[in-house]
């Protein structure tokens, strides 16, 4: 059997894995709100800094 069959099968399987990951992410609601997480990501650091500040005070 030619190696091309093997390679293409593997590549399709990899692609299918990504498709599965994508569908799973959608199902978990990761695509429901694009805005809030992007802002929230920035907050965590600020909060920690703030905690330090209040500790010092």
């Amino acid at each position: 059997m030619s190696v091309i069959y093997l390679l293409i099968t593997i590549s399709i399987i990899v692609a299918l894995l990504f498709l599965y990951a994508f569908i799973k992410a959608v199902r978990q609601g990761q695509f429901d709100d694009y805005y809030t997480p992007s802002v929230r990501m920035l907050f965590d650091d600020e909060t920690k800094q703030n905690d330090n500040k209040t500790n010092k005070d």
């Binding site: 299918l16 990504f18 498709l19 994508f22 569908i23 959608v26 429901d32």
Partner: peptide, 15 residues
Amino acid sequence: QVDRSLIYKLGVAFF
């Protein structure tokens, strides 16, 4: 129920 079918369709279409 949140309608996510369009995103599924889009994902499949892109695949």
